[in-house]
Design a protein around this nucleic acid. Structure first.
Lengths: 226, 226
DNA sequence: TAGGATATTATGGTATGCCAAAACGTCGGT
DNA sequence: ACCGACGTTTTGGCATACCATAATATCCTA
């Protein structure tokens, strides 16, 4: 037993931070459904924390758009209307296009390789029918894209918007043929970036989101609100 | 004294909501400076509310990006780095361009008139050297633009981003000649919208933000961090 | 049985308390 | 004068309490 093993490990995160992550993940994963009432005291029991923490977490989530509070009625999981969902796809289109263009103009071969690796992991997840992993790896792909583009502000926005349409995302990746078409479109993004084609990357990224948007539009025509 | 005067007026907003607005406005108006420590108990005294409310307000403002909390050190007013500020201008450029294009494609004469009225108010504020009003009326102009474009999600993003660079905004509108050039550029946006020119409106909006970005870049070269 | 009145319970808004850790001030030794 | 140890104060993390209002259940009457 040497000196290091006597060291006291201090918790890396506060209870509040842990609870926030847990709640955010639970909403994103549809454990709590859109429109569902989030009763503070129930959450206290589920999370095993006091109301103080629950309320503070709810304030965060309100500001993130994942929770809505209207008048005297308590907090509910936010409902993303079809109109909003389509707006979100549009915004993602312009921001992802912007990031893709910046990556292409950067001319960084290592970045292109990292994106390719991330895309390969998406393909692999599709191949294994691991749809949960497809979403996670897609998020990772875009994180690499925005970090590579040095656009952390836009990444914060896109990531937050994406959380609000996660149910829809989960549905679009399951549409027939998406497992082939989706990675093919993303491959075009990566290729354009590797080749340094700014406009090409911009349009490839926009097209990819545009197609997802069309899929979502069709799905929303069948089952409203996500 | 009739029946109506016996009615109990219930407060429209909770204490928390009022405190949140007050704090947000105070940060935006530079009452609290970037990097300044926001001590909970001090805020309690200044706002006249309990720590509960202060903490919940701080959670909101954290998620909005106006307040930062790092490790064991308490909350501070967020510092927007020059890099972030420039990113924010870039994002505004694409989102405002998108909204302007949507307005132009809408072909709504009433909307164009409302935008013109809003721009006239900006001009009037410039003429009276009321720079605080210039900022307020500019915000109103863009609110009308996004609402007219039916892009409330993008408006939420732009409004929130703009709050983070308000000091810089306050400085750019004060640069020599901006009082003439700014409204001229915005007039081009309004004209393109009135004439139904989608691409024209898009580029006019992008150009306007691009010029503000260049002014900001120059200012940031002199005085870092806002 | 249906509807209204009343009682009870649940819930959000808000304040206060406790405690551990961080920050700051003081003192003594070199 | 500087540094380290120690004591004191400040501060954030977190829990709990109180209260008014909203929601729900129960009871009584027509």
């Amino acid at each position: 037993m040497d000196e290091r093993s006597l060291r006291v490990e201090r918790p890396e995160k506060t209870l509040r931070e842990l609870a926030l992550e847990r709640m955010r993940d639970a909403i994103i994963a549809s454990h709590f459904k859109p429109g569902e009432r989030l009763v503070e005291r129930d959450l206290c029991m589920q999370l095993g924390v006091s109301r103080t923490i629950v309320r503070e977490v709810l304030r965060h989530l309100e500001s993130e758009g994942l929770v809505a509070t209207a008048g005297t009625r308590g907090p509910v999981v936010a409902v993303t209307t079809p109109e909003q969902a389509l707006q979100i796809y549009e915004i993602r289109g312009v921001l992802e296009g912007m990031a893709a263009r910046a990556c292409a103009e950067k001319g960084d071969a290592k970045l292109a390789a990292t994106l390719q690796a991330a895309l390969d992991r998406i393909k692999s997840a599709y191949g294994r029918r691991r749809m949960d992993l497809v979403l996670d790896e897609t998020t990772e792909f875009y994180r690499v894209l925005f970090v590579g583009a040095e656009r952390d502000v836009a990444w914060g926005i896109v990531n937050s918007l994406t959380a609000r349409i996660n149910r829809l995302r989960s549905m679009t990746i399951r549409t027939p043929g998406r497992d082939i078409d989706g990675p093919t479109q993303m491959q075009r993004i990566v290729d354009a970036i590797r080749d340094g084609h700014g406009e090409g990357a911009y349009h490839a990224a926009q097209e990819h989101v545009g197609i997802a948007s069309s899929l979502a539009r069709a799905l929303l025509a069948d089952t409203p609100a996500a």
